[in-house]
Design a protein around this nucleic acid. Structure first.
Lengths: 240, 240
DNA sequence: CCTACCGATCGGTAGG
DNA sequence: CCTACCGATCGGTAGG
């Protein structure tokens, strides 16, 4: 509560902080109870306001959900594009995609669960927006797998099913991963890229089995900055 | 509408049929809109009743959901136990588990989606019941994978992560599989068991890569009867 | 004219 | 299976 620095733009700063607190709290409620089961009164109570005050900062409950989902999807797409920059080899591209996907789903678990679970409550135009970003993201996976199959470095019964399998198993991280116990997100990312390469029966030009280490792409933890700032702790509110 | 046979137990038959129609309609609404977003008035309208009449057949909305989820989970467990009967080899056991899992999630898609999505709305005792059945089911997978790793026929970074990956990717079938287009459930099952064996880097005693065909377990379609009767078509109501 | 809210209540609908 | 309702709570907004 102590003010360490004078705040010249105090009003604006507080407005932003309050909006962020509302959004963070909404995310926590939506991702644990579900959007429909979360009342605006419950949200307002948790933030310590009346609903009338809440509506000073927020358009509607639906907008809150839409913003959360859109931002999460946009962040994933942008991070994936960043993680692929300068990488050409299909096996390396898949590894990078798995790494950024697992990192995003381990670090932004609540956002990922919400995107996964609440698509059906979106209105048609908001849904279209999210699905467009998702399609663009999936296209990155599709291309890498098809090219790997064409080059003969991947061998799968069906490229489309293999892609769905890898994406689905990696998305699962958001549902069962427990931070602060067991593997770090980066370790999990390597574990999963090894599983993905195995599933794809990835081999090098000489026909030898390929794993993540063989591709020498570095620690996936280096990709974390691509995801933007870390999710704020629930009640973090540092002066400045 | 024509009666082909006299019905001596007309009342009972109709009562059963109405309950089934309500349950089937509830399943369709829950699995597409979500439990919270489905109103009892909406359910009653779809079945062609008032809400009051609906409550003649049904305890509560929550009970309807609980029954659907419990039955689906019980069916999956029983089918898996049946599919494993007389199978000892870990690779063969995993293949059988993947087959029955994919079949169940392709054929009983709506039930599977509901179990997947609506766990959080269950009350503690109903939740415990479902989780107990799920734990017993997962234990079958755990044992097969651990034994395969011990025997040296599977090679994975981490047995627990590999199990979650395979189960999650197979469960995904319930969310994207379209019946009546592309592969049959049995074909999909073989596709997935090949992916699972690849992911586990399964080999035989001689160190050669193993696929589903090599295990000669027969067509997974033969396992379908283990799942019990097929889901009724939405409006099926045969005389007798 | 602004911001950051308040107490009270709106019209409708929820499950039962 | 219906009409007629209940206690409570829903998302959202009024004036100040």
């Amino acid at each position: 509560m102590t003010e360490l620095v004078p705040r010249r733009e105090g009003r604006k700063r507080n407005a932003a902080t309050t909006s962020e607190r509302i959004r963070r709290t909404a995310l926590e409620l939506f991702s644990t109870q579900g959007y429909e089961a979360t009342g605006i009164r419950e949200l307002a109570d948790r933030v310590g306001m009346t609903t009338a005050s809440l509506y000073h900062y927020v358009g509607t409950k639906a907008e809150l959900l839409t913003d959360i989902m859109r931002d999460a999807q946009a962040r994933l797409l942008a991070a994936a594009q960043g993680a692929l920059a300068g990488i050409d080899d299909p096996a390396a591209r898949i590894v990078r995609l798995v790494h950024i996907h697992v990192l995003a789903h381990a670090i932004f678990q609540l956002e990922a669960r919400t995107v996964d679970t609440e698509l059906r409550v979106l209105d048609p135009s908001a849904l279209q927006e999210i699905l467009d970003a998702r399609d663009e993201y999936e296209q990155l996976w599709r291309e890498a797998i098809v090219r790997g199959c064409d080059d003969g470095v991947f061998t799968v019964p069906d490229a489309s099913t293999a892609r769905l399998a890898i994406m689905t198993m990696s998305t699962g991280v958001a549902h069962w991963y427990k931070p602060n116990r067991g593997a770090s997100p980066a370790e999990l990312a390597v574990n999963f890229s090894d599983l993905a390469l195995a599933l794809l029966r990835a081999t090098d030009a000489a026909g030898r089995t390929v794993d993540t280490a063989a591709l020498a792409l570095g620690d996936p933890a280096e990709l974390i900055p691509l995801l933007g700032i870390a999710p704020p702790a629930s009640t973090a509110d540092a002066a400045r």
